[in-house]
Write a protein that binds this DNA or RNA. Sequence first.
RNA 1: CGGGACGUGGCGCAGCUCGGUAGCGCACUUGCUUCGGGAGCAAGGGGUCGCUGGUUCAAAUCCAGUCGUCCCGACCA
Length: 577
Amino acid sequence: MRYSKFFIPSLKEDPKEAAIKSHRLLLRAGYIRQISGGIYAYLPLGFKALKKLENLIREEMNSAGAIEISMPFVQPLELWRQSGRDEDYGRELLRFKDRQDRDFCLAPTYEEAITDLVKKNIRSYKELPLILYQVHLKFRDEIRPRYGLMRAKEFIMKDAYSFDINEEGLDKSYKIMKNAYERIFKRLGFEFRFIKADSGEIGGSFSEELMVFSEYGEDKVVVCSNCGYSASFDDAEWAKEYHESLGSCRQPRMTKLFTPDKKSVEDVSEYLKIDKACFAKTIIYESEKGFIAAMVRGDHEVNEHKLKKATGIKDLTLAKEEDVERITGSPCGFAGPFRLHGINLIIVDEEITAQEYWITGANEKDAHMANVKPDRDFTPDIVAKIRNIGDGDMCLRCASRLSVKNTIELGHIFKLGEKYSLTMDAKFLDESGASKNFVMGCYGIGVGRTLQALVEIFSDENGINLPVCISPFIVCVVSLNTGDEKIVSLADRIYNDLLKAGNDVLYDDRKLSAGVKLKDVDLIGIPLKIIIGNKTIKDGKYELAIKKTGKREFYDNLDDLYNKVTTLVKTEFLNMI
RNA sequence: CGGGACGUGGCGCAGCUCGGUAGCGCACUUGCUUCGGGAGCAAGGGGUCGCUGGUUCAAAUCCAGUCGUCCCGACCA
């Protein structure tokens, strides 16, 4: 493809609306453009990369025995009434009417459509198991779309659905899909883990999320580098380690300490020269069950997700400053667990009851209290794990140190069981002629999000760096001086030779200065470039630059150059498989 | 939905506090010179200042409303 005849509107400056690297690069490199909040157009480069990614996924789905179909993006709302999700899905489901005043919606997912399709067309156990998939649009009217393709309202997803005669069959299908996912994400070069997850809106009995490690990920995962244990930030387990409280602090009653203006644990710890782990902090929350107090060790943080679970509370927010002042009788920053007014519940982290003496706030301005003893000076109503896990906590399995990593969720696989086949009355006849519900699974990959994750993880600020198997072009021929006959005809020839050899090649024949062209190739992320300029003619050597390594190689004749390109492409592909 | 910020040629921004001629860089067009990492000179084109209403002799600027975009929270691939 000649650059001059193609459409790559690259941007020199960072667009102001993009907050993260991958979003900036996709816009700057002319891969995508926003049409409306959370709604994007794929430009030629983005579209080519997207198609390559989709096809890689197709290869693995097909080889796993899944069969590709395509279901309607616009669906009758009636389908959603059948499953009951018309109400469950809420405002994320975009609804509208056609000219006959019938209700429709844009598909946020396809369980209803596929269940309906299979229900009407599969009669017998002999036709099972069946795994169908599609690569298709979805629309969710997100509350807050952001970060480009990472969280768009309209997005492309690969979704597969398995139909089995029983749970064992489902387990098998699930495993087949999980293996396919492992192959896909290995080929893409990602570092990833499957993490057990809440099944959320889609429902079902069991699900795992495919999480890819990335500094800018929105989710947190806890991993042990030694034994490979991994779990979501909210569910991860760790080994208890008890901190020795200060011996000199053990007293038969509480002792008041003067701590002028020292409000945070940090400040007090520094002021008193006592380890933060010897403190217990008391946090006041407001909830539908009234005000509650939660306690964790001074060097830990309350995990609101765990707090909600342990208390059965749904709406939880930090209490307002004036409420804290009323409840504790002191300014914010000096709260302790005793003599609280209007607290309905005291919940403490299990580490609080495991240690005898604590330093807490004194519920008095400029004062903290030492020798605070659980069950003597205050009485917890609930003892539970309510603190965040942190870097350095001990692994429950192997006693190594755990670390918390940011991740991006790129896939989610579910064992649905009979959830949809029951509500939608989808049945087949088994061996004995009895009518049975399909046992289902569903398996998603956010394709657009995966493309952006590749950009996020493998690129630098100079440009995109997609894996060779996804990159829109493999090699770019850059002709530096378009006014020079010799250079132009040499560049033309190399371009045509590479094209004939079956390479995906871009030819930058634009009449622009060298700097602009070289910057553009780096930005749009073509893995190999062949640079042809005066130097080429003068030295009689052909230059190949490899983006990934930054290396430049020189060849005496064209055949050597072509051979190198071919081997590089082949080995790069091999490395990815 | 709650909290915050921003809307001025294609892109990035200044001007707004203190009302009075709409400006800068890049991009674009033409010509000449350049040609190995975002070239130089010269000449040009392009904006009802998001929209609506109000205040005023006069509004990009002040006021109200509205729409859009982005960021922070609860949801998700």
